[in-house]
């Protein structure tokens, strides 16, 4: 089938602003949008720049706006979006070239969440693993799925309005540790998230939950973090 693919192009070494270029190619309903991009880059315009790696939705490299919504290009098929396809970089992060945006601020926000196990207690005396019940393990399972693709944060209207907001992905990372029964750093993280750039900036727009390619219920997770802040309890 013939595909009409309109792609946002911006070359920082030549352009003062971006523009849209339309390509027409032959494609298959089962092609991934990533395959479409690779084909255009390989056969028509080698300068087209985008990030990608695993090509099956686990590495998080290729988040972009496809027909106006955030998706992973490798998990979106032509049959999901139709023959008229518009591809643009995600919003809210500085465009560096074509579909590549500056991810440093996104990873900086992640790092601010103290995203590692905080546990000052002695390790088990028998030298084996810390115990954790299957129920306790299930409590934070969803938030372990995050692949840091930034689809959520860059779909959040609050983040667009104020890039200082830590954003949904960072809060999910915090949630993953706050609700891990082996972690002892909940208070520290909740304190960080109680600042002006923390959870107060979430206005329950729900864009994050809709954008997440891993189907994490992000708004719910942010809500649980807010509850923990208000009640002082984790259950």
């Amino acid at each position: 089938m013939e595909l009409t693919v309109k792609i946002f192009r911006y070359n920082p070494e030549k352009d003062t602003r971006g523009n849209y270029v339309t390509y027409k190619i032959e494609g298959d309903a089962n092609d991934r949008i990533l395959d479409v991009l690779e084909h255009i880059k390989g056969k028509i315009d080698g300068t087209l720049a985008f990030r990608r790696s695993c090509a099956h939705g686990v590495c998080g490299s290729d988040a972009m706006r496809i027909n106006g919504r955030n998706h992973l290009a490798c998990k979106t098929l032509v049959r999901d979006v139709g023959a008229n396809i518009t591809v643009e970089p995600v919003l809210g992060l500085k465009i560096q070239k074509d579909l590549i945006v500056d991810m440093d601020p996104f990873f900086d926000n992640y790092k601010k969440m103290l995203p590692y196990l905080i546990n000052g207690s002695p390790l088990p005396a028998d030298g084996r693993e810390r115990l954790q019940s299957p129920e306790d393990r299930a409590r934070f399972d969803e938030s372990t799925k995050c692949i840091l693709c930034a689809a959520c944060t860059t779909s959040c209207p609050s983040y667009w309005a104020n890039g200082e907001y830590y954003g949904p992905a960072a809060i999910v990372a915090a949630h993953r540790f706050i609700f891990d029964s082996r972690d002892e750093g909940a208070a520290e993280r909740l304190h960080i998230l109680s600042e002006t750039d923390g959870t107060v900036r979430c206005h329950t727009a729900y864009n994050c939950t809709e954008a997440c390619p891993r189907e994490i219920k992000i708004t719910k997770a942010i809500g649980e973090v807010k509850m923990a802040m208000v009640t002082g309890k984790l259950d």
């Binding site: 693993e129 115990l131 019940s133 299957p134 393990r137 934070f140 399972d141 540790f177």
Partner: peptide, 20 residues
């Protein structure tokens, strides 16, 4: 090596007894 990963925080699935 596996126990060390768990100690670092890796969220392994658990048996009913709470072991990896």
């Amino acid at each position: 090596a596996v126990i060390e990963l768990e100690n670092m925080g890796l969220p392994f699935d658990r048996t009913p007894e709470g072991r990896i």
